[in-house]
Design a protein around this nucleic acid. Structure first.
Lengths: 216, 216
DNA sequence: CGCGTGCCCTTAACGGTGTTAAGTCGTCAA
DNA sequence: TTGACGACTTAACACCGTTAAGGGCACGCG
């Protein structure tokens, strides 16, 4: 009979498929049964490769990190400021590339040590520029926290990435805030152009890091 | 018969109870049935007050925000730097006061406009100090994103707040990272004293904001 | 060649989850 | 007295993550 034997799964293929599916159905639609269906397999089969769903999510985050560092080490870097800006800007872009990307990524534990080498390289850029190892860690962590927090808020607020999808209810928000003009304008400032807002903040973080952590 | 009639629920009481329960069982244990049990009610009763679970979570986040701004406006403020540091430090402390606090708080929509007044006050501190309205919004958003991102990472990594709970596996981590000395030390630097790490980063953010957003 | 010992997956089922539909019961207005 | 309405219960649904048990194919060893 036509019993073509499938090549067996592995953690990587499962994570790849789950990441592709994530963009179609979002985090709350990403069920084990849906992932299994996509792989032409029944749900319990996934438990051969992962001890539970969280382990699968960890592998997804790890795969995101691998793709990201593969992309980022390919880009040319100038001085440490530009390198840091490039890293965090790239992190943001990658996270935006997956639906609920930041929520999946934030606070998950990587499943292997593939993060070590790119992290070491990033930190070395900073120490080469005069940061102590401790200050480099602080600088990296500060910019990282800012980026994660920004993208979580950015993704949580609307499905549409570019247009904002809510130009109309932004106006409604403005009207409700007639008594608080600064808060009203802050809404426009923060929600209109996410990219510009992110980079303005990132510039501030980078300059602050230079000021308070490098020269001491 | 002893049919003491309970006073009916309202959104606020449900959110209060849910917040108390959150600290006992965590976000993944926070089911509608458990909340209802605590209120001496069956689960579907909650649907009279909230259209779905997300609406309840939104109300919880709103209540967290209300408590926080009640606490923060009571504190004395000095110059804008100290005010911003106090605000974000207080935000962090409040989020740490709830199990999974940052995850519940981040990216939820407030259910009313009680955020408007404290937000306006915070922004006015900045504009009074010479920030344009747009720059004040950027400054506030930048510090806010940093704080949210930091606390999410902080809460995601371990149950223990003070001791770190993982002094032991931090050493294990260090051994695995023998080939990446900077990454190894970064682990110690970032995970040892969260409070110090947060404030070092916050100082950087504040100074960066001063440098790139105020004088322009 | 036969045969057991893995690996990789299926079938069946469990308890629990958010959510909906329909009904109940006390309270208050007319 | 009656009727409407507010606040809740009971029953049930579809689906979720997860576990237990077993099946079949491949391959090394006698």
């Amino acid at each position: 009979m036509s019993s073509e034997r499938r090549t067996p799964l592995d953690r990587r293929r499962v994570a790849d498929t789950a990441l592709r599916l994530l963009n179609e159905v979002g985090l709350e639609g990403l069920t084990l049964r849906a992932i299994a269906r996509e792989l032409d397999v029944k749900a319990p089969a996934l438990y051969w490769h992962f001890k539970d769903k969280q382990a699968l999510l960890d592998e997804m985050a790890t795969e995101m990190m691998r793709r990201m560092s593969a992309d980022l080490t390919a880009r040319p870097a100038g001085d440490w400021r530009e390198a840091l800006r490039l890293m965090m800007g790239g992190l943001r872009e990658h996270l935006l590339g997956y639906r609920d990307g930041a929520k999946v990524y934030a606070g998950t534990r990587f499943t292997d040590m593939s993060y070590a080498e790119p992290m070491e390289a990033s930190l070395r850029v900073l120490t080469d520029a005069g940061f102590t190892p401790a200050a480099a860690a602080r600088a990296w962590s500060t910019a990282y926290s800012y980026t994660i927090g920004y993208v979580i808020e950015e993704q949580a607020m609307g499905p549409d990435p570019a247009t904002g999808a809510g130009g109309h209810d932004l106006d409604a928000r403005g009207e409700r805030l007639a008594a608080q003009p600064l808060a009203a304008q802050a809404g426009y400032e923060m929600f209109r152009d996410h990219r510009a807002g992110f980079e303005a903040g990132l510039d501030a973080v980078v300059e602050g890091v230079a000021l308070t952590l490098r020269d001491r």
